[in-house]
Design a protein around this nucleic acid. Sequence first.
DNA 1: AAAGGCCTCAACCGCAGGTAG
DNA 2: GCTACCTGCGGTTGAGGCCTT
Length: 192
Amino acid sequence: MMRRPCCEKRGMNKGAWSKQEDQRLTEYVLTHGEGRWGSVPKAAGLLRCGKSCRLRWINYLRPELKRGNFSEDEEDLIIKLHALLGNRWSLIAGRLPGRTDNEVKNHWNSRLSKKFQSRTREEVKLCAPRKYSCQLSSASNSNNDFEARFDLNLDLTMSLSSSPIECDANREQLIEKDGSEVSQTPALALFL
DNA sequence: AAAGGCCTCAACCGCAGGTAG
DNA sequence: GCTACCTGCGGTTGAGGCCTT
């Protein structure tokens, strides 16, 4: 299907947002609510495309956004969720109140991926030449916490668990749009 | 002090799913 | 059923600040 470009109209602003633009968008959304982004630029008097307005609001202007540095707990959670879900940033961000998918993605790409990789390398050194096959039972031992995480990653890419998910309250958040469930592994029990 | 490389993060791009007409 | 629009997502880019030499 042919699709017109998002910002094909001439005269549209691109790039960094000015304070006036932020103010106009904020006032408009606070007054009229989110949604119908296609009509927002015109209604709010902005020379931006609706997509750009939506992104600016979601990633930067929403009052409930936390901003600032990620805590240790948040970073641990991101690492665990990423091991489980992969690059599904919106799902990961959904479990971090006040954080956006863009923020989580940037944080992962710039810091956590390196942190995770370096930790993995350390664990490989410590564990070698042992076989990396620790089971869920060892995950409850804090000394083996990261080892479990390392193995979790392997399990995720190689097999599906047949064990039922532990927490029903969180289960529905792990259901795919088509009704199928995200791969369930013993690791789920680590943080649900 | 300055030049160049690195890092961070806001913003853009392209694609896909849902849906209204 | 087809088309066009809206929305949301993940990948990528680039400006600007920071760090190193």
